[in-house]
């Protein structure tokens, strides 16, 4: 099995920062992939599959994070997670409300 590491910088665009709901969305997306997924920022490293860990980043709007995936589907995982940030966590179904 190919263990590739792929990383990419993402920026938190949500006005209220990476709070509980986007952290939940992010962990759900990360859990779709086999690869280990971590976020690095503010001198910390957080497991991308854990909401609790993601919340420890306290990433406010404008924070730059590096998403790092290692595993057989690293490339696809980083692509999908990058997409989530790019569309600002908007629900594809249409709701953009963040609470």
């Amino acid at each position: 099995m190919i263990q590739e590491t792929v990383s990419r910088e993402v920026v938190v665009g949500i006005r209220e920062g990476l709070h509980a709901r986007p952290a939940d969305q992010l962990a759900r997306e990360a859990r779709k992939w086999q690869s280990r997924i971590e976020f690095v920022g503010s001198g910390q490293r957080a497991d991308g599959k854990s909401i609790l860990e993601l919340l420890t980043l306290a990433a406010e709007a404008g924070t730059r994070l590096v998403v790092e995936a290692t595993g057989p589907d690293a490339r696809e995982a980083v692509e999908a997670i990058g997409g989530l940030f790019a569309r600002n966590f908007a629900d594809p179904a249409g709701s953009t409300e963040h609470t």
Partner: peptide, 14 residues
């Protein structure tokens, strides 16, 4: 005050 909320979540999770 979204910043306070975010920092409370940070403290709890940390």
């Amino acid at each position: 005050r979204p910043g306070d909320h975010l920092r409370a979540l940070e403290n709890i999770s940390r």
